[in-house]
Design a protein around this nucleic acid. Structure first.
Lengths: 193, 193, 193, 193
DNA sequence: CATGAATGAGCCTTCATTCAT
DNA sequence: AATGAATGAAGGCTCATTCAT
């Protein structure tokens, strides 16, 4: 409906490019389209045809992960425990950010290169808002936090984990500790403050 | 006794360079020594003579703020309320990070360009450790946070504020909200967990 | 099978670059890639794409001459007169060094930038060794000279000619005189010394 | 008669500078006046006052060695054996060139920075000419070599030794071998050629 | 569609030399 | 005399992007 399906060879190139980019992101190398082209055994022009900017490529790399998060978000909406649903959703989000280096920049970016990214971010934001509203309504969460705070806070935790450093395994651990602390703070509504 | 005082003209240039750098940092432009030189109306060589690397210049720009924090830290050590002292110290720190764009990169950097920076960072870290230990001993803080978590968490909050965006005034506000939440989480020891 | 032939335009640029470099070498100007680019009317990047370092370009400039020497060397091996063959080979070598300013640095360099250069140098060295060994075996040459002395001595003569100065024509003449003297010394084995 | 003697402190500085330069030359580091100043613990200006150019400093470093050569040359003139005198003189010269890195560039330079250098070079050239003429007159030397060939040939040998490489001890050895060969060639006049 | 050569702005850095102090 | 700060031309190299083939 939206996009004409790619010719078979073009699709193969598209896959190669994304795979190479994924590998580069995982090893922390900044995405340079020339570089990606060389490693993929393709011409620069081909890469540019598929991805007009480094950001577009990065977002493409991040997409599957964002989709998984969005899927999980839809399930979370079905959860009847307001606090539990929020907690699970945020946990998943932070785990993803810490595990997948492509998410942080995409999430924090003020503008998106691909419409699909915008869709997914909007969807996630909407889920987050809903879950937070429910929790707030259930008085399970301090009232001075708005839904616009969720993304920044998740980015903040991911960044904190990054600054802390350590092996990938360490990082997940650290992320859980930091998130636990923050969630405790979210929960403990300043009743009499 | 420490450093030979600069000649008057050299001092003037030093000041100019730092002032230009300060301005660039404040408007979010990355520091490039050639650029700084041009804007300061000086030769490149002059800037290189004073600051061997962009990092050295950045740290110089950050120094006054770090010194103010360190001074405040020394006072905080005299505070007899373990929790209050920690809270005040972290508040100041986050306010500074959010207000002054030179702090975040300097704080997060694994290596320092200037000895003075190392001194100040060490001093701040030591104050933080002491205050956290006291609070932990007073059971005012959840036990699973170590002193090595303080810097990452402060950087995380600063980053969250950055992602949230808004005017400088907004940002201080946001910082207070985020910090308050986190502190609540620090305080509320997971009693039965 | 060896190298993909260059595209027509790329080949034209390659030629231009080498031609400019040749001219610079001939007039004694040191090769600077930026400079070459400007004179060739090309972008710096183009020159860097073709030749990663000044040495690579210089060796490319020297290659045709080295190939001619190598070809002559192969013929010299067929000469049945041990002394005559050596003499002819060394004469050609020195004439080349004196005539073509690109040879001296390439010959004297301890490391090569291009594999082709290494091939050619190895080949020439091997011819020289063979010819010297034959002459030594025929007792036509003083025994205290090793094949590792050939290159230095040829470089030495070329350098002597350079110091002497004069027009290109003068220089060939001088080279012949110097080489004749040296060859006389090589021949006259110190019988009773 | 010529120069006002330096003030005591100025003389001390002069000495320091030359000593530092000597050390740099010996270790093969190119002479940079800024660098020399720093190592000597002096201001750049001071070094410039004493030596207007790097060449002037280099020539100053070379001077003692040139003077020793000149002194030996004057003695050689008293030697009654034409060939022996020439041989001894050239041997000394080559040994010096190979041993002292300051000589090669000074000798090969077409122009001098210091009058004293010109004096010494002239003197040496004159000695060489005289010795060669005597040897030629005694028919001890092939007639097609002129006195203007001596300097180039010595430079050539030094350069050959340099290209050959090896430890300082090796180099003297190599120099003797190369010079012996060349001298043999000088001696063996091409009687019937 | 794919290719990859070309581009050139832009950044970094060094160093010989001058000149105010 | 000595100092050393300032200068800025000069050279090196990278990389995002375009466009002819």
């Amino acid at each position: 409906m939206t996009t004409t399906p790619l010719r078979k060879d073009a699709a193969r190139n598209w896959d190669r490019i994304v795979a190479v980019a994924r590998a580069l992101v995982d090893q922390g190398t900044p995405l340079q389209l020339n570089d990606v082209a060389r490693r993929a055994g393709l011409g620069v022009g081909t890469v540019y045809r598929h991805f007009a900017t480094p950001e577009a490529l990065l977002e493409t790399v991040a997409t599957p992960c964002l989709e998984a998060l969005a899927a999980h978000g839809r399930q979370a909406l079905a959860d009847t425990d307001p606090w539990g649903a929020l907690e699970a959703f945020l946990t998943r989000t932070v785990e993803a950010q810490v595990t997948d280096a492509s998410l942080a920049p995409v999430t924090a970016a003020p503008a998106d290169a691909l419409p699909r990214t915008t869709e997914l971010k909007t969807s996630l934001w909407s889920v987050g808002t809903t879950l937070l509203d429910r929790a707030t309504a259930a008085e399970a969460v301090r009232p001075d936090l708005a839904s616009t705070d969720l993304v920044p806070l998740m980015c903040g935790i991911a960044h904190a984990v990054h600054v802390h450093g350590g092996t990938p395994a360490d990082r997940i651990d650290t992320a859980h500790r930091y998130l636990a602390t923050l969630l405790e703070g979210l929960k403990a509504a300043p009743t009499h403050a």
